[in-house]
Design a protein around this nucleic acid. Structure first.
Length: 317
DNA sequence: GAGGCGTGGGC
DNA sequence: TGCCCAAGCCT
């Protein structure tokens, strides 16, 4: 791996508003980005005050690897049906999987249900405010814990999702794409760029994500609409294309994943238990079919019943 | 740390 | 048409 080359630094500013930034001085990025956000932010339901911490948390689960446009309708139905964590916690996990619909990665539904149970049992039914307690919930990792703490509670955290990573890779590091996996250097950079003021930091988190989602996109970026184009290291370097090993792609066709998806689709649509013979029709190859079904059972997404019947899980696994 | 894990839209 | 991508998490 080659170390990304940094473009020439502009003259150092007297003293950064960002506070101590170590070896990354320069004009603060957050001010123009936040100003842009004030003007161009999308009106999304989980950003409205009435969404509350639970709404923010539900949206974060659903948005993991899934586009906003597909999340919107499911989010609305979900919150209407389960307005509080305790409402979801008393449901069967299979109901969460069914309501998840075709958002993909249905283990997220199971984990969101598990998180609701934990919140009800351990936190009095309120989404915890503490980053470490959020991180301890199923389905919540580094990104989601920081996002909920920041968006729902206005706390100061580095919120490092794929959008922010791309914005920083370009604006600061001067490369087209961030590394495949989040690195210590990226975390350090994100922390260094975090405004000191808590409110401003939370605003910056949302604003930098939105910039990556709407302007500084993976493909067909629109730099002419970017509030920091004049300071962007990648832009100043002439927007060199990514070099090095190809970025990891996803395969799908013919994989167990595809078979799992087909099996679960049948079970979601069915009201009650489904005979094995019905499931057998979704995939021609018996070995792979069986492996996929076993995997779903092992993951707790499917419950086997006596007599070769299967259903979405009624009990906690 | 590399791979597994859904689904559908855009180019 | 395929390929790439979309607010990651877990093992």
């Amino acid at each position: 791996m080659t170390v990304p080359t940094m473009p020439p630094k502009s003259p150092k500013s007297p003293h950064s508003v960002n506070g101590p930034v170590g070896d990354t001085p320069g004009e603060p990025l957050h001010t123009p980005v936040i100003d842009w956000f004030d003007e161009h932010a999308r009106d999304l339901p989980w950003r409205r005050p009435e969404a509350g911490p639970w709404g923010v948390m539900v949206s974060e689960f659903m948005l993991q690897q899934t586009p906003v446009s597909r999340v919107l309708p499911v989010y609305e139905q979900w919150l209407a049906r389960w307005p509080r964590p305790a409402d979801l916690a008393q449901e069967a996990p299979g109901e969460a999987v069914r309501a998840w619909g075709r958002l993909g990665y249905p283990r997220r539904a199971l984990r969101l249900h598990g998180a609701a149970v934990a919140i009800t049992e351990r936190h009095g039914g309120d989404v915890p405010t503490d980053h470490a307690q959020l991180l301890a919930l199923p389905g919540i990792g580094e990104y989601t814990a920081a996002a909920v703490a920041s968006f729902a509670y206005g706390q100061r955290h580095a919120v490092l999702d794929t959008n922010v990573r791309r914005v920083l890779a370009r604006a600061v590091t001067g490369v087209q794409y961030p590394p495949n996996a989040t690195t210590a250097a990226e975390r350090k950079l994100a922390r260094a760029l975090l405004p000191q003021d808590e409110r401003t930091a939370a605003r910056w988190a949302a604003a930098s994500m939105e910039l990556g989602a709407l302007v500084c996109t993976a493909k067909n970026e629109t730099c002419h609409r970017c509030p920091i184009a004049a300071q962007c290291a990648w832009q100043l370097a002439g927007k060199p294309e990514h070099d090095g090993p190809p970025r990891r792609g996803q395969t799908y066709a013919g994989t167990d994943r595809q078979v799992r998806g087909k099996l679960l689709a049948v079970l979601r649509e069915a009201r009650g238990p489904v005979p094995q013979a019905v499931l057998d029709r979704v995939w021609h190859e018996p070995v792979q079919r069986a492996r996929a079904l076993d995997g779903l059972v092992a993951d707790g997404l499917v419950e086997p019943l006596p007599g070769g019947l299967y259903r979405l899980p009624l009990t906690r696994s």
